[in-house]
Write a protein that binds this DNA or RNA. Structure first.
Length: 600
RNA sequence: GCGCCCGUAGCUCAGUUGGAUAGAGCAUCAGGCUUCGAACCUGAGGGUCGGGCGUUCGAGUCGCUCCGGGCGCACCA
């Protein structure tokens, strides 16, 4: 990438001017300072001169092709000439190599995300793991990693005891096929009248009644035990409940454009549990805990609560399955990094899990990463599937789409394929909102914020993209083609393939501050991608896309492109900048799992 | 009680390995479409970055401490 070459040249030049000094460059806050900055504080201190003096000396002594070096107080800024800056960036953005991507470097990354529990409906909370994980998988791929997307389905565990017990109690006699509403069903919307919702109702009812009758808990436990011991009736029902759930999950994943390379849920590891436990036993890590459970003590790792590997009744627990899964993945994928995109309420669990693995095999040290995210709360308090006070994901998506539909009718009633665009914008709003803020911060759900359509939102970025497409269409087929895809895109690819576009030989008309600041924001995209990878969240990417879209809007209002008095070379240079911006926005949104329509 | 996370404008939040005058959006107020899409743009007001001490040439960012909030703390996931 050409911008990298400029950076390397600057770095090398500084290194020879300041032998032995650590050369750390940074990206200035504002484009007016320049493209790259060298803060002189540290080197100046080492050399015993005031930082501003050093900056001036360096500015006088060094030269960089196509740019000037300016001392601004304690900073030495590299500022490219406006035309050189435009050329460097436009060639990188319109060239064949995806902008800001990295060549394959053979690093194997596993991302475990979404991982819904069978027999539960997707709530707004599930969107977090699903879309953060999707974006992480996409960004890591874009940056050259070999990524495996893992969905650790919650298809095993005591909850199945609950489900089996509830089914036997209330459904088997009255509604064995779960094909009609239960007598106790309240008025529910048509599209929720499916078997999965009825399973969900059974689950909720069991937990409600269990509070009055604690003996029911033993009933559920007994059923899980039967399941784990291979009881044929328990197995048959389990498998059926799982199918019902998966059918619904796949429908939602298709809507969100999310896919996985493996759906090995907890049940998949069932026949590996014994081996995992045996391995712990041989390593001498297992001890007898209070009440007869088999545990691993972790005080020496700074964790006071031991990890329970087998419950007192001998059955497995989620830690057992996570241990078996980690060992399986070690063998199967030989990964460099394994990211768990799981809620922050499980930090202790992952600390324990990683600590046990490190004791078992130092190979795991540093490879296991929990990327926790803040839980979604309601204004009234915590969401609880068991208690039934939840916001369902599809209700949010549908409401967002409905709101978009109304705005389309108001502002652009002649738009072709309205329904498809409404879907893309509605989902864009919800998904972008989720990525906008720091992963670890809890979110208090508020309709107005989640499905907002103006301000710092997905549709704002999508609008900038659509406006550019509109200009390019008017500029002619060749330009319109420059932002269209030459190959189909889907959840299986990370880098979009655009039709060929060429940068004009001359680039006048990009000297205005509005154009230069847009170029500067575009130049920030590679850093944003690397930050997203390093911090395991899409937030830096979302923020940078917003900055690009915002700066583009300024450019658009201040720099006419197709007006009659605009000369051809100026027009073409500006069109090239438009095309470059549209590509950056479309690619960036795509990595986040958001589509960018050409019209809206 | 112990552990982890968080505290930045009225509200919701950004703030890159510690670096230039702490930035957005919403809300409020004042402007801008016979001209490339106004789902937009320009401007204004609004801050002792929870309090204090410390490390540093330099702290919203690192350390200690206090206050306030969230989550977790042995057989749920």
């Amino acid at each position: 990438m050409v911008m990298e070459q400029v950076k390397e040249q600057f770095k090398a030049s500084l290194a020879s001017a300041l032998p032995g000094q650590d050369i750390a460059l940074e990206r200035p806050r504002s484009w007016e300072h320049g493209d790259l900055a060298f803060p002189c504080f540290r080197a100046a201190k080492a050399l015993g001169v005031p930082p501003p003096k050093l900056a001036q000396d360096l500015a006088a002594r060094m030269t960089i092709d196509g740019g000037e070096l300016v001392a601004a107080g304690p900073y030495l800024n590299l500022r490219l000439q406006p035309e050189a800056r435009a050329r460097v960036l436009l060639e990188a953005l319109l060239g064949p190599t995806p902008f800001g991507s990295a060549p394959d470097h053979d690093e194997a990354v596993l991302v475990e995300y979404s991982s819904p529990n069978i027999a539960k409906l997707f709530t707004i909370g599930h969107l977090r793991s699903t879309m953060i994980g999707h974006a992480l998988a996409q960004v890591n791929r874009y940056l050259g990693c070999r990524v495996q997307r893992l969905n650790h389905l919650g298809d095993w565990g005591t909850q199945f005891g609950t489900l089996l017990a509830a089914y036997k109690r209330w459904a088997e006699a009255e509604n064995p096929a779960l094909d009609q509403d239960f007598p106790w069903a309240e008025e529910i919307p048509e599209r929720r009248r499916n078997p999965l919702f009825r399973l969900f109702q059974l689950y909720v009812r069991f937990h409600q009644e269990e509070e009055q009758d604690p003996a029911m808990r033993d009933e559920a436990r007994a059923w899980f035990r039967r399941l784990e011991e291979g009881d044929s009736e328990a197995r048959r029902l389990w498998s059926w409940f799982r199918e019902i759930s998966l059918a619904e999950f796949h429908r939602i994943y298709a809507r969100l454009g999310v896919a996985f390379d493996a759906l090995d849920g907890e049940a998949f590891y069932e026949d590996r549990l014994a081996a995992a436990v045996a391995k712990l036993e041989t390593s001498g890590l297992l001890e007898e805990g209070e009440g007869g459970a088999r545990i691993v003590r972790l005080e020496d790792a700074g964790i006071q609560t031991p990890c329970i590997v087998l419950k007192a009744d001998g059955t497995s627990i989620y830690a057992t399955r996570d241990l078996a899964a980690a060992l399986y993945r070690q063998e199967t994928y030989a990964f460099d990094r394994c990211l768990y995109v799981v809620g922050s309420d499980q930090v202790l669990h992952f600390q324990q899990l990683f600590a046990v693995l490190n004791k078992l095999d130092p190979w795991f040290q540093g490879r296991m990463v929990h990327a926790p995210f803040g839980m979604v709360k309601l204004p009234e308090g915590k969401m609880s599937t068991r208690k039934g006070n939840v916001v369902f994901l599809e209700d949010v998506l549908d409401e967002a789409v409905t709101r978009v539909r109304a705005i389309i009718e108001e502002k652009n009633p002649d738009l072709p394929s309205k329904e498809r665009v409404a879907e893309q914008l509605g989902l864009g709003a919800v998904v972008f909102f989720d990525a906008l803020n720091d992963r670890v911060k809890p979110i208090t759900f508020a309709w107005d914020r989640v499905i907002a359509l103006d301000g710092d939102t997905g549709p704002y970025v999508q609008y900038a993209h659509a406006r550019i497409c509109s200009v390019l269409r008017k500029a002619g087929e060749a330009w319109a083609q420059a932002v269209r895809l030459a190959a189909p895109a889907g959840p299986e690819v990370a880098a979009l393939t655009f039709h060929l576009a060429t940068v004009p030989d001359e680039l006048p008309g990009l000297d205005e501050p509005a154009a230069q600041s847009l170029l500067f924001e575009l130049a920030g995209l590679p850093d944003a991608l690397r930050n997203a990878q390093r911090e395991h969240m899409a937030t830096p990417l979302a923020r940078q896309l917003l900055a690009i879209a915002k700066t583009f809007s300024g450019f658009y209002t201040q720099c006419p492109i197709l007006k009659p008095d605009i000369e051809a070379p100026v027009r073409d240079a500006r069109l090239a900048l438009c095309a470059a911006t549209a590509r950056a926005l479309r690619q960036g949104l795509f990595l986040m799992g958001i589509q960018a329509p050409e019209e809206m």
